[in-house]
Amino acid sequence: MYRTLKKSSIYAQISPTPRELSVCCGVSLLIHGEDVEQIKEIAEAEHLNYLSIDGLNNTFDNTRHKYG
């Protein structure tokens, strides 16, 4: 999925799955909201599997300084 999106010049960033979406950690793709429909079309055309596409109201803040 990641490689296909990159080939199509669609923004995708490999990232950990947010806790709100899964308790199993695992890999997710971070995508732009405006690309969702296009990504769904590409996934269907290329027979690419994914569990779900979800939106979260999270922001990245490099000055939060919380490291776990």
């Binding site: 990232s15 947010p18 490291y67």
Partner: peptide
């Protein structure tokens, strides 16, 4: 272990994905 899984994605987002 789930408690660790809860905090790491946020830290990774802040430290790495924000760059």
């Amino acid at each position: 272990h789930d408690q660790l899984c809860a905090v790491l994605p946020g830290a990774i987002g802040d430290v790495f994905m924000s760059q």
